[in-house]
């Protein structure tokens, strides 16, 4: 993929959030996107047309992360109110509230079958919540982390969590093993490569680290941006050719995956870019920022 194909042109600005937007996520097919922020709402957008579709209000504090099922029927969200909400997308009602985290919940994800919500909390734990039954108790608590868990990522068989204790821990359900990769730096964000072989970990020393999942080897480090105090997202492009991430100075960075050179950087927001999400198929990207906007980028 050439550099020109990178989404660097602003197509739409999704305005509506009052206060910072803490996360923006494409849905499974990339037709919609969700954002959540400090105004305690979750908003559903059509990023391609720049239309605000729906607002989900129920959280008592800021909403830190949101995720949608592959069939677009359910949402899960989490935030500062220490709860994980399980929403019905169409009606906008909360189906279930999962309480149990002792601290703020930093990240949340559905599993492949949308049957389990896994949340990462400040209480140093990952918790798995059952969406099928009516139980509001977690079906599993993973508390081997030594510090706040900032981000969670799921595969078909694994739960991957990144924590401030500097570890990326992979919990393989299939073999019942926990693999802890200590990066030595607080991990803000873990995201999977599209081929599933690598983990991109955003660390608080202003670097992104690419880990080989099978060996735990550090493949590459991506530097240049600023990330020292905020929880910033990072991800790989849909072709796995580039690594992208926001910076605390409002810039967006694109690195080449292999040689870690900054391919492109441009000012996207006036403030910290909290989240980036890349379209699953097209060259499109949404970014959110503390400045209260969500921007849609295309080539």
């Amino acid at each position: 993929m050439r550099v020109e194909d990178l989404p660097r042109k602003e197509v739409n600005v999704l305005k509506g959030h009052e206060g910072g937007v803490l996360a923006a996520r494409f849905n499974g097919d990339g037709n919609y996107c969700l954002s959540c922020g400090k105004d305690r709402t979750i908003r559903l957008w059509n990023p391609h047309r720049g239309i605000h579709i729906k607002t989900y209000k129920s959280h008592a504090r800021e909403v830190r992360d949101v995720h949608v099922t592959p069939d677009n029927s359910k949402l899960c969200s989490c935030g500062g109110d220490r709860q994980v909400f399980y929403w019905d997308v169409a009606t906008g009602r909360v189906i279930r509230k999962f309480r149990g985290h002792d601290g703020e919940v930093n990240g949340v994800k559905f599993n492949e079958y949308s049957s389990v919500v896994v949340s990462a909390g400040y209480d140093q734990s990952l918790r798995a919540w059952d969406c099928r039954s009516h139980s509001t108790e977690p079906i599993q608590i993973i508390d081997t982390f030594a510090d706040s868990v900032m981000s969670v990522s799921l595969t078909k068989t694994e739960i991957i969590g990144g924590s401030v204790d500097g570890t990326v821990r992979t919990f393989d359900i299939r073999i019942g093993r926990e693999i802890s990769d200590n990066l030595g730096q607080p991990v803000n964000c873990v995201s999977m490569s599209n081929d599933g072989n690598c983990i991109l970990a955003g660390c608080l020393d202003s670097s992104l680290r690419l880990l080989d999942r099978s060996t735990g080897e550090l493949l590459q480090e991506y530097k240049g941006h600023t990330n020292k105090s905020y929880k910033l997202d990072c991800c790989l492009t849909n072709t796995d050719a580039h690594v992208t991430g926001g910076s605390e100075d409002g810039f967006i960075y694109f690195w080449d995956l292999v040689d870690a050179s900054v391919v492109s950087r441009f000012r996207a927001h006036t403030s910290v870019v909290t989240s980036v999400s890349y379209h699953p198929k097209e060259n499109c990207m949404v970014t959110s920022s503390v400045d209260g906007t969500v921007r849609v980028w295309k080539t």
Binding site: A128, D130, G176, E178, N182, Q185
Partner: peptide, 14 residues
Amino acid sequence: YPKREEFQWRPSPL
């Protein structure tokens, strides 16, 4: 770094 460690971890049956 990175240091890799492996532990036993028991997923709940559910």
